[in-house]
């Protein structure tokens, strides 16, 4: 086995990195792969609660780095999927407890253990982000259709390219098709136009994300969740499958369709 290492990052906080990591991890494991998710947000760990594994933590990433335990001992097995694991971040330390070289060393050791390694990057552009970026084979940049999040995504894309880890791929999160249709939310094409990056998936705004986070189970394991389905499609694209981009359905009427045609026709 030689795992592919995917780092999920965004620059701005709160746009969905951890949720994306948990959902992609579950989706890839559900496809039959052996997956290890690493929480690189030392001091502000959260991937454990999103995955519902907070009560099973004994060792963490810093314990591995400092040699207090073996890598295998820090890998917590998921409750639902046998081949999904979490290496949690330390909660009582800070980002300087781990270096980019440590991350590369641990990831190289892990490569032999699994098919996919997903690294949940902390927000920001400092040490924690550098740690998460260092071992990456592929970087996924996640953003919302908000000017602040898109601006930070652009900054991150620049840094990824400077580290020769680019070009990354974009996940556009929390899209409300209704608002896009009205012209009050940046459309996917607008964001791709501004950021000059390839798209790997669009996640619609969906209540099932919060509901599944409340329960500590990935929405991608819920067959009725539309956001979960979008994550499953991203996992398949990561896996090299050609999956067409889904058209997001919002309420639409005659005038909605007209207005879309008018806008598409370049009236602006």
């Amino acid at each position: 086995m030689s795992a592919k290492i995917i780092t999920i990052t965004s620059g701005k906080g709160g746009v969905g990195k951890t949720t994306a990591t948990a959902n992609l991890g579950a989706s890839l494991a559900d496809l039959g792969y052996r997956v290890v998710c690493i929480d690189a947000d030392i001091g502000l760990r959260n991937l454990d609660v999103v995955m519902g594994l907070e009560n099973r933590i004994v060792y963490d990433l810093v314990d591995v780095v400092e040699g207090h335990c073996k890598l295998r001992q820090a890998m917590i097995r998921d409750k639902h999927l046998n081949d999904l694991f979490l290496i949690p971040a330390a909660q009582t330390r800070d980002k300087t407890a781990v270096s980019p070289q440590d991350m590369v060393r641990i990831s190289d050791e892990l490569r032999q253990e699994c098919d996919w390694i997903l690294i949940d990057s902390p927000a920001g552009i400092e040490r924690g982000f550098r740690n998460a970026l260092a071992p990456a084979d592929v970087v996924l940049v996640i953003t919302n259709p908000e000017v602040s999040a898109v601006r930070d995504a652009d900054r991150i894309i620049g840094l990824i390219e400077a580290e020769e880890k680019g070009p990354g791929k974009l996940i556009l999160n929390r899209v409300k098709p209704e608002m896009v249709r009205r012209g009050d939310m940046l459309a996917t094409e607008d964001i791709l136009d501004v950021l000059a990056i390839d798209l790997i998936g669009v996640i619609p705004e969906d209540e099932t994300i919060l509901i599944s986070t409340n329960r500590g189970m990935a929405a991608s394991l819920d067959s009725k969740s539309i956001a979960g389905k979008a994550y499953r499609n991203i996992a398949r694209r990561l896996n090299g499958e050609e999956v067409p981009f889904e058209t997001l359905q919002g309420r639409d009427g005659f005038f909605g369709r007209i207005s879309r045609l008018v806008r598409a026709g370049g009236v602006r």
Partner: peptide, 21 residues
Amino acid sequence: RLRIGRRGTAYTAKQRLQTVL
């Protein structure tokens, strides 16, 4: 329906983003 044809705020957002970037 009356708003059809007017530019939504997404247009403003894109313009501002392009400048700031």
